[in-house]
């Protein structure tokens, strides 16, 4: 009753879709390709394909297998969960429409987990490093308290229009996957290692590596907030420290793959300028 089935498009459609999934049973086990086949329906996206695969739990040649694991949430491209590599390109699987994919490659759809993050299982990956980067740049407004202190500072419309796009970053990780300078860091847990020791080791490994375009952009977002600015120096110290902005190689893939079209390279250039001034200032203020 509510929201009836989607419209049937008149053009020629296949009856079946071939899907190849790069599966992996767990961390440290070898990945393997598996072929699936699902019935075609109009207006499908990769999520509905994966839902069918989960319900079938059978490969194209009839072998019973465990359902493919993957991560998804809102299905409307605002939560950032369902990032994966589809036909070689990183993107959100909810907005990857099957009809478009078949136009590019009618033979099959190829699904892979992101390559820059450790695989948890199948298409699920561990993106804790991405969130850790947000801690590194202290991506927050350091307010005094949550008591009622009246409104915040007045903000010119122009500033809002500059900051709103940056604030739409949903931590999906597309920019990191496509960045040739962002390399995978996988910390394997030792047998018998405590949570705390493992977390500390992960943190250390993450801290030594590139922070990534998303975090640079968030640093710029908060550096341009009237109160967020109070941590400006600390953020620039991070950006000019180990794994900071210097690791950027200006391939500009980040901005090209960002599903939210966030002006990441503008943020990077702004951060570059700020870092230049910060370093010169530090040199003469010493």
């Amino acid at each position: 009753m509510i929201a009836p089935g989607p419209e049937v498009s008149p053009s020629r459609r296949p009856s079946k879709i071939n899907v190849r999934v790069l599966r992996q049973d767990g961390p440290g086990t070898p990945p393997y390709w598996e072929r699936h086949q699902v019935d075609y329906e109009p207006d499908m996206n990769v999520i509905s394909v994966l839902q069918k695969i989960a319900a079938q739990a059978t490969t194209f040649d009839g072998k019973k297998v465990s359902p493919v694991a993957w991560d998804c949430g809102c299905l409307e491209e605002v939560c950032g969960s369902c990032t994966m590599v589809i036909n070689g390109r990183v993107r959100q699987s909810c907005s990857a429409l099957v009809d478009r994919l078949l136009e590019d490659n009618p033979e099959e759809i190829q699904l892979q987990p992101m390559t820059k993050f450790p695989v948890v299982r199948d298409l699920m990956i561990d993106r804790s490093r991405l969130f850790h980067s947000l801690k590194r740049v202290q991506a927050w407004v350091p307010v005094d308290s949550y008591f009622d202190m009246g409104a915040g500072p007045r903000i010119p419309r122009e500033d809002q229009e500059q900051n709103y796009p940056l604030s739409q970053c949903m931590s999906c990780g597309c920019c990191l996957e496509a960045c040739p300078q962002f390399n995978k860091v996988e910390v394997i847990r030792h047998a018998g290692e405590t949570d705390e020791a493992f977390d500390a080791r992960k943190k250390q490994a993450y801290d030594a590596e590139f922070i990534g375009p998303h975090a640079i952009s968030q640093a710029m977002l908060f550096n341009s907030h009237p109160v967020g600015k109070n941590l400006q120096k600390e953020r620039l110290e991070t950006l000019t420290g180990t794994g900071g902005i210097q690791a950027c190689g200006n391939a500009q893939n980040c901005v090209a793959v960002c599903p939210k079209e966030i002006p990441l390279t503008t943020s990077i250039a702004r951060a570059g300028r700020a870092a230049t001034l910060h370093t010169i200032k530090k040199l003469f203020d010493r």
Binding site: D148, M149, A151, G152, I155, P156, D159, Q160, H225
Partner: peptide, 17 residues
């Protein structure tokens, strides 16, 4: 809303801010 404003939510603004 005042609190969320202070936390940096990018609310749309009037021309006057």
């Amino acid at each position: 809303i005042d609190l969320m404003d202070r936390l940096g939510v990018t609310f749309n603004r009037t021309p006057e801010g």
